[in-house]
Every structure is written in C-alpha cells, then in structure tokens.
Design a protein around this nucleic acid. Sequence first.
DNA 1: TCCCGTAGTGCAGTAAATGCGAACTAATGA
DNA 2: TCATTAGTTCGCATTTACTGCACTACGGGA
Lengths: 116, 116
Amino acid sequence: MRPLTHPSTDDVSLEAILHALSDPVRMAIYAELEHADGPQSCTRFATALERGIPKSTLSQHFRVLREAGLVHSERQGVEMRNTSRRADIDRRFPGLLDAIMSAYRQQMGERSTPAS
Amino acid sequence: MRPLTHPSTDDVSLEAILHALSDPVRMAIYAELEHADGPQSCTRFATALERGIPKSTLSQHFRVLREAGLVHSERQGVEMRNTSRRADIDRRFPGLLDAIMSAYRQQMGERSTPAS
DNA sequence: TCCCGTAGTGCAGTAAATGCGAACTAATGA
DNA sequence: TCATTAGTTCGCATTTACTGCACTACGGGA
C-alpha cells in the first residue's frame, strides 16, 4: 500500500480544490468534516450520507480530497482519522472556503425548504 | 442548431460553478471575460490563451460556462457576444466569485514570479 | 440572388476519468 | 493463529471530455 500523500500548504492549487468540491458527495463529506469536532473515520460517511456508498468509491473520494489538500488523513490503528485542513487552506487562499461553504449552506437551506 | 440555454439566476448551482471553474482553460476564459469591457467573441480566446485551442473544444467550454450560469452568450450577426454574468452570481451567492477570482489572481501572480 | 468567407455548432470516434465489485493489506484482539 | 474490521487496489464497465470534420448561420460583395 502506497503511503498517503498530502500536498504542502503552498502547493495547494485552486483548480484541485474546485474540482474536489464540485462533486456533491465530496462536498458533503468535507462539510461534515469541517464542523465535526475531532477526526472522523471514512466509514462514518458510508452510512451518514443517506445513500449507501460503496467503500471503494468512498476511498477514492477521500483520496481526491486528500490530494487537493482539503483533508488530512492519518492511520490510527485499524481506522483512519480524517480532519479538515481548513486552517491551511485559509492561509493559502484567505476567504475562499468561507465563501464556498457559505454558498453551500445557503443552497442546502433552499433544498430542504422547497419553494412554497 | 439548438437554441442557447441559460439558467435563471435562481437555478444556478454551486456544484456547476465549481465544476466549470475547475478547468484551467475555462477559468482563464471566465477571468478574461470578467475584466474585459464589453462582450467578447469566442474566437478571441482561441488565440488569446497561449496555446491554440480547437474551436470545437472552445465551443464546448463556452457551453459549460453558459450552462453553469457564469456566462451570457448572444448571437450578434456572425459572431457571439459573450459577457460575464457576474452580477447575477453575486446576487445568488454573495462573495463567492470575489473569493474564487481573488484566489485565482493570487495563484497566477505566484506562477509568473517563481520563488526566488 | 448567388457565392464566398467567417464564427460557431453537432457528431462520431477515441481518450481519459469515474464508479464499483472483488480481492487484497494492515492492524487488532481473542 | 485465525477472525474481524477498516481501507486500499485492481480491473472492468460506464460516463464524460477532447477534437477533426462536416455542417449551419449570418453577412457582404458582385
């Protein structure tokens, strides 16, 4: 098994971030990771996100988030500790995640309250 | 030829915007459109972006930008008048394009001045 | 009006990315 | 040592993207 690769903060690219977050599953994962307190395992999301996502697919999604620099993953025993690298990204691109996540929450709000 | 489709401001989705701008060519096109004064034709970018992009490819990129709601296209005689829908997006997702485009300009700046 | 040039679109083949089941690795504990 | 749990990797099927070529649409002569 190849070791986990995390880009250094300076190497994080806007393109990779936008691509990673343009997938609804990855966006949902990242959003949860961000406001979770403490690291979260991968499988937590297989069940948390309504539909049952196969673990091979989940694994790919985490790899994309990791290689974009959005998420830090570390093996802890048998499972993985995933945390948001929010602070790093904020240093790299101030205000970016603020704006994206606020747009995301806004859109989520609209969806849960369909137009009356 | 099918008519050009533009989403209404309310139907613009974050996902589509992030996807559209996660491609370097589309990002470059959108950035130029935004600070151009007045509408720009499609072919303007075939040459403007250093490498010669085939026009069928350009046409597809414009379609993605258009369907994401980022760009308004209108036929004017033989050519196309493309304009940024920045104001619409700002109303839909306040601060989003501000943050993304500022991150983009920052990253561009770094690339043109490689680390000393 | 007919023909030509220019701008962009649609199509079809191919190339690249994604999704997912199945087999695998790695760590833990009985 | 064997079973269990958490993730990864591989390989194949499906989807999506790129691009050359033929096409449409419009405008301007002659």
